[in-house]
């Protein structure tokens, strides 16, 4: 079966009259129907840009250089080559998105009802009464109890958690196949975050919606996702199931991230930390591995040649020369033992 969303060798470049450089390089992601997929990375890792590219919402200075983003619903469409008009039919209908800032993502001059039903007006043909009923149902589903009252309210009258619930209601009202959630809980408090994540889990199951969760928080990934891609400096460095990543992380960057968070919980004296700073796109390593300058295991080769995505175990790939070396060592050993 074809995956619902198939991102294949996606490359995004920054282009201005002064400079030109690559930002996102060779992203491959497959999301099946109803799957909950996570992309985790630090600020500037390109995780949000990847999600914007899916909806064709990249800022003007950024261009998709090559690659495909295929959406397989009833028919297969390549979202990169789609016309603006066709793209508009997909946004909100097949693919919906929720953003980090519930404060600015809602328009302050319209009521919740107007904004909630706007999507329906564009994509579906319902009567006014049906739409109103749909809106109420949806608000109830996202756990808003006084839905009649909330429909008439304006965004500033709601708390952050409520607004994010409204955003989720807006995203799911057309029953999209894929929901992209870009840091949906980062601006919220922990107790509210727990509510929202819980809600998203429930709704994706009851609505059969696949979720693409974009976050910097590994904890959120573990709470919600089945598969995860770890991004660093515009590339995927490791990709596998959530269990594999958390229990058998292979890439030095993933290991570093996990160690620094895990050592937090241990109340040890010194925290594990990855040295150096996150590079900005204009000074990404041209050759070799983009993580090499901060990597404790960097070898000469890492500065010269880009590592391949290596299958470290079944269904678990990591972009590092170490695995290649290890595999070669193993091969040598077995061939020696064999002869």
């Amino acid at each position: 079966m074809k995956p619902l969303l198939d991102i294949n060798r996606l490359n995004i470049d920054y282009q201005s009259n002064k400079k030109e450089f690559n930002i996102i390089k060779d992203i491959n992601i497959q999301i099946d129907e109803k799957m909950k997929y996570g992309i985790v990375g630090e600020s500037g890792s390109g995780k949000s840009l990847t999600s914007l590219a899916i909806l064709n919402l990249l800022p003007d200075a950024l261009k998709v250089d090559q690659g495909h983003i295929k959406l397989n619903t009833d028919s297969t469409k390549d979202l990169i080559t789609l016309s603006k008009k066709e793209m508009r039919k997909i946004r909100g209908n097949d693919i919906a998105m929720i953003f980090q800032e519930p404060m600015t993502a809602l328009d302050p001059v319209y009521t919740i009802e107007y904004q909630l039903l706007e999507v329906l007006k564009i994509h579906k043909n319902y009567s006014k009464k049906e739409m109103h009923q749909k809106g109420l149902d949806m608000l109830n589903k996202v756990g808003i109890s006084r839905s009649e009252q909330i429909m008439k309210a304006y965004p500033h009258e709601l708390s952050g958690g409520m607004r994010q619930r409204v955003m989720i209601a807006m995203a799911l009202i057309c029953e999209p196949k894929l929901l992209i959630a870009d840091e949906p809980t980062t601006a919220l408090d922990v107790t509210i975050q727990a509510q929202i994540l819980d809600l998203m889990n429930d709704l994706s199951e009851s609505h059969h919606t696949a979720i693409l969760m974009i976050t910097h928080d590994l904890g959120v990934i573990l709470e919600t996702c089945e598969r995860v891609a770890v991004m660093y400096a515009g590339q995927i460095v490791e990709e596998s199931t959530v269990e594999n990543i958390f229990e058998e992380a292979a890439h030095p960057y993933t290991k570093g991230l996990l160690s620094s968070i895990q050592s937090l919980g241990e109340r040890s004296n010194e925290l594990y930390s990855i040295p150096g700073n996150v590079p900005t796109p204009d000074n990404y390593q041209e050759l070799g591995c983009r993580f090499a300058t901060r990597c404790p295991f960097a070898m000469d080769k890492c500065y010269e040649q880009e590592p391949p995505m290596f299958e470290v175990q079944d269904d678990h790939a990591s972009k590092c020369w170490l695995h290649v070396e290890e595999a070669q060592d193993d091969e040598r050993r077995t061939s020696r033992a064999g002869s």
Binding site: S159, G161, V190, A194, G219, L222, E247, G265
Partner: peptide, 27 residues
């Protein structure tokens, strides 16, 4: 208690047997 239980776990094993208290409503 609720605050501590709401922290997303980063340990898959811990996640299994953690009792979560999800608070209702907002501050």
């Amino acid at each position: 208690k609720a605050l501590l239980s709401a922290i997303p776990s980063i340990n898959p094993k811990e996640k299994e047997n953690k009792e979560r208290i999800i608070l209702q409503g907002d501050v």
